[in-house]
Amino acid sequence: MSAEIGGPLPVLDHLDVKMPPGSFTAFVGPSGCGKSTLTKLVAGLMRPDEGQVWLGGQMVKSPRATVGMAFQNPVLLEWRSILSNVLLPLEIVPNKLSKAERTARARDLLALVGLSDFEDKRPSELSGGMRQRASLCRALVHRPEVLILDEPFGALDAFTREDLWQTMHRLRAEEKFTAVLITHDLRESVFLADEIVVMSARPARVQYRMQSRLPKNRDLEILYTPEAVEMLATLRRQIRIAQGRAAA
């Protein structure tokens, strides 16, 4: 698929990526290479000028309820409690759940990310990491097929970020979704993803693809194993090539 915005230079160019159901794919690349454009295309918020986006056998032409999104900014609604924030998608997406069932679903998710005691708090009363956890719950509450993560941990401090990576693994074990992660953090991509796609500078193409060699069950220690270190080194080299700082 290709997309053009605001000029003749395409943002994405022949970016052909297939993501099998249930997989976790991370996209890394230099700043401004069009990663956010990619999320908008997958979410149906933007249509490609050329090419197509397919989700589960259907072409994406407009936004669809089978997508959940989380951004770097958790964008929680300050006037709602945490529980009510998580419930928001169920107010939009058509569903047959009763009010009690919706609340139960939201509570389950909040428990999964460790926010049970904060259901009735306002977002302003929570720390950045907690808000991002709530944002993840909101993105998943309507059981989306695709979870789009646009640098969701980018603004957090290193320790909180690692906590949330582990939360992400917990969510993956309990919920069924195909994840698309946009990130600048190579360690994050190695720790979370099954497949890592390095995008070139604009117009972004697939420059390099890497299948994870790490086992499914991961804890933070795994980042210090030789496999992970080697993956990181390869990715770092590819990023430098994408930035134009090293020869291919």
Binding site: A43, L45, R64
Partner: peptide
């Protein structure tokens, strides 16, 4: 209004 706020709902078809 930050565009993300809009995207959150618009991506659900609101």
């Amino acid at each position: 209004l930050e565009p993300e706020y809009r995207d959150i709902l618009r991506s659900l078809g609101a």
